[in-house]
Design a binder for these strands. Structure first.
Lengths: 343, 343
DNA sequence: TTGAAAGCGCTACCAT
DNA sequence: ATGGTAGCGCTTTCAA
């Protein structure tokens, strides 16, 4: 069926297109009777005004910022980041909308980026948890859409805010070492996954390398990797406990939800936390405060904020440079203690 | 500064606008040297192609669905609903994008709805946690944007999916009553709030009315309302314990996070859960499974799915009616038991 | 109060 | 390979 335009509506209602436009916009100067006729024609024809055509002759001040992301990898970081994006946008300007593009696969991601570059619906783009490739960046550059990545990896060559997992891992190492721990274990996700997420690997690298520097290298038997989640982490903890002669005095778990699973298994096996085994998580979920889990906070909301600030600035100041975020902080709570206290 | 168009770029590069358009679209047939010149002109002029103008002559098949919502009232319901929206949209059609409009106040909401109706950027609208008024619905109807609300209240007169808190409350009453409880308390949010959220009030109404029907009406002293959150719920529980002579044998708490606070305070006061006091929450968070909290699951993801299904159907079948969702289910876990077991 | 007509900024097709 | 030109569907004058 052919596209229905105001011409069709006008014809059917027996009026001019100007009149149709007027009723569409409530711009007055339309008699009640004609308005009725036009409304009827609209309804009968199921007319839908064309967004682009409508916007074109208007000096619209509405602007869009696109956010490309995975469909909510983690509740926490997704929502917190979006929150940072939102509030920053609201404070900076009131005419920005957020367009959420969510993609499931790398192919979809590629397609999405190119189509975004093509149709120009957004004037700036925030890419979360994906790494753009050269061709994708070319597309964006050609049409002049500024973009920034929030990603696990750092790149020197294009705008990027890194969530520095490596540094977070090192922080964990320092913290546990300073508490006097020597036999330390790591529990996290397997390193290979379809999205190329390298979170677990990076946290582990930072952790193990720092530990080696400190003179307490982590033995393979103390590293247990598996699927994500509470239950899986329980199993990994069980595995760790079973396979090792000298029980660890501390465990660094790559996420809070997994740390909870780890603690559960430890307690079920008769270990006290932290007296027998300290457990350190990563994320600082709301629940982590509730259960007093020691953890690492990555200021994930802040990364959303920084990203938008950069995107906004780059429109004004062509030479803007993103703040490379690499802030984390240990939140010590009740699941970690020094080895002495344990003894 | 005047808007920069391809004409400006063409002039500056000494070419025709057709050529500029070609380099913009990578459509070939441009010599490398001219492409260079055009690129430079684009850069120098900071030219940004106009989205609307670009889209107009194209037969774009990209379509948008708008989602208007609070900025993430609750992580859980926000993400879960969005998840339902996403997956349903992805399964149904691959050319739909989600445009997220988030508003903080009722005024902003009104403004947003009217501007959405006006600019026609989306062809369908999902309104979450807000109640549209007559004038707003008129605006949407005038331009023929189908919409649906997901809200706490049920309306017979326009498309709406109700999250039937009243029924959920009644469910809680039935469940606790059947376990043999007679002295039952309620802990929840205060009924008045700037957003007109009536969740707490509705859950309480359903709960208390059902309890009355069952012959075990809830006394005022057993109802404690306050701010949201874990800590606040602790305080409310303290208050309850202090002000009442006969301790309740069961407490219905309006949300899981609050239920956790309640349990914490109970245990701190020497009560065993559930042996001394049963606690029932509402939401079924991920953590609730972990800590084995008995709760009510409202299938919040499903509501997002149903809403999109309706919106999609209404485009095809003008007489579509939304499924009025009112499904909840008790998830009995380890924080509730019968009074007999407790004794 | 209304109809006609001139663009809005771009794409795509025609020539050349 | 390139420049010119006819629309895309609408809003907004301008006359009537």
């Amino acid at each position: 069926m052919p596209k229905i335009t105001i011409y069709d509506v006008a014809k059917r209602a027996g009026v001019g297109i100007g009149t149709v436009s007027r009723v569409l916009n409530n711009s007055g100067n339309v008699s009640e009777s004609t308005r009725q006729k036009v409304q009827e024609a609209i309804k009968a024809l199921q007319f839908k005004p064309n967004y682009a055509a409508r916007k074109l002759p208007r000096k619209s001040d509405q602007r869009n910022i696109g956010v490309v992301t995975q469909p909510f990898q983690s509740y926490h970081s997704f929502v917190e980041r979006l929150r940072g994006v939102q509030s920053t946008l609201n404070n900076a300007a009131d005419n920005f909308e957020i367009i959420l593009f969510s993609v499931n696969t790398l192919d979809q991601f590629d397609h999405q980026i190119k189509s975004i570059a093509q149709n120009g619906m957004v004037e700036a783009l925030l890419v979360i948890d994906f790494a753009t490739d050269k061709s994708q960046r070319n597309h964006l550059n050609t049409v002049g859409i500024p973009y920034i990545e929030i990603n696990h990896n750092m790149h020197a060559d294009w705008p990027c805010i890194a969530t520095d997992n490596y540094r977070g891992g090192a922080l964990a190492a320092d913290y546990l070492y300073e508490l006097g721990h020597q036999r330390i274990a790591y529990i996290g996700d397997v390193f290979e996954n379809p999205y190329n997420f390298t979170t677990s690997e990076e946290r582990f690298s930072g952790f193990s390398e720092r530990l080696a520097e400190l003179g307490v290298p982590i033995a393979d038997a103390y590293v247990h990797l598996g699927p994500h989640g509470f239950e899986a982490a329980r199993l990994l903890t069980r595995e760790l406990l079973d396979q090792v002669n000298d029980k660890p005095t501390a465990i660094f778990v790559m996420s809070d939800m997994q740390a909870l699973g780890c603690i559960r298994e430890l307690q079920a096996s008769g270990y006290r936390v932290p007296e027998d085994v300290s457990v350190l998580g990563y994320d600082n979920l709301e629940i982590s405060d509730v259960v007093q889990l020691s953890t690492i906070d990555q200021y994930v909301q802040l990364s959303g904020q920084r990203a938008i600030e950069y995107l906004l600035e780059v429109q004004i100041d062509k030479d803007a440079q993103p703040d490379v975020l690499s802030e984390q902080v240990i939140i010590p709570r009740q699941t970690t203690c020094s080895v002495d206290q344990g003894a």
